[in-house]
Design a protein around this nucleic acid. Structure first.
Lengths: 186, 186
DNA sequence: CTTACACTTTACCGATAGGTACAAAATATC
DNA sequence: GATATTTTGTACCTATCGGTAAAGTGTAAG
């Protein structure tokens, strides 16, 4: 077994993710990634023999894992009220009040959706079902919980778009607050 | 004055817009635009001496004009209930139940936002204010109307993201229906 | 018919795209 | 320390990128 190196595959995935966030999938060139990761082309293709597509796949998987442990699992297992607080606080921090985009949402809007459709689909599907489950455990009936869950997940995506478009972080916070309120039955 | 030709500048703008929608700004190459518009490179640069940026600017302007006459003006001038119906019906048709993306929203997520920030910002600003005005005329107080307007515009953007991610048009319709219901005070 | 101008076609430009080849260097195993 | 394996740097490949130049073609006004 090798001793932990400064740059392993798993260390470079978040850096690639940030580059995709900033420039989009098409707008991120390999040479831009070498600057951003401080890794040569050879190293990049050594870690990701599948090229840019494989990098995107790895990034999407990494994101899904983060949400799985930080958001989805708590929604499944914790008591609903606590889990909902955790979710809204978690996404506000993760998306930096809308200044950091949701890469999965951005991919859904691009042509790249077709290339990574299963990753994109499973992320949102998992989120909605986890949220819907928590809402049901908090006393909501199944149909209402499903509708509200989809509404909330969509609302978060929309809040990112809007706060970035208007370059106003407070928009994100305001919309998130309203969504949280409605989950509490307001 | 010249006789109306088959391809004028204004005829080609929607075609360029559709290409941007499908492939994104970075993903749309000039050669792809020549195929999509059936115009040579020379013709394109004759119509848009500023290149791809000028094309995007023209497309954004064209979109804003469409919304101005079909959505924003009615919200300003018609009676609120009628204007709201028109808005929800209009966007559902325009975005083809989420299968056709909002280019302005997509630009807000990309790096291109910085290049076209004023067009992106004014589009959403205008929409929110027009909607807020209609909601106020329907009896809502100013603060609530402003909050709900932002929520609805964000919700529409989120509905596009979600329905595309899940490849399910019915999601779009369901979320739009709920947003409409809340505008009617439900 | 001629002149003027709008439009199109074609060839071309340097830069950069994603990707490969391969030798050198670093590291791990024995 | 010798050997096997990973990791890295560099040079290189073809294709395409956005954009330009200029000659040619069509149309319209005088």
């Amino acid at each position: 077994m090798m001793v932990r190196m400064v740059y392993e595959r798993r260390d470079v995935i978040p850096l690639i993710g940030e580059a995709f966030r900033r420039y989009g999938f098409e707008g991120t060139s390999i040479s831009r990634l070498t600057e951003h990761t401080k890794l040569g082309k050879g190293s990049l293709y050594n870690f990701f023999p599948g090229g840019k597509d494989a990098m995107a796949e790895a990034v999407l998987d990494h994101i899904h894992q983060w949400f799985e442990t930080e958001i989805f699992k708590p929604l499944d297992e914790l008591n609903p009220s606590e889990a909902l607080d955790m979710m809204f606080a978690g996404v506000s921090k993760y998306f930096r009040s809308g200044q950091r985009i949701c890469l999965v949402g951005a991919f859904a809007l691009e042509e790249t959706r077709d290339r990574f459709s299963s990753a994109v689909c499973s992320y949102f599907d998992r989120w909605i079902h986890a949220l819907s489950g928590a809402l049901q455990r908090s006393g909501m009936n199944s149909a209402d919980a499903g509708t509200l869950a989809a509404e909330v997940v969509a609302g978060i995506q929309g809040a990112i778009v809007l706060s970035r478009a208007l370059m106003d972080e407070t928009r994100f916070a305001a919309i998130i607050a309203r969504l949280a309120q409605r989950c509490r039955g307001g």
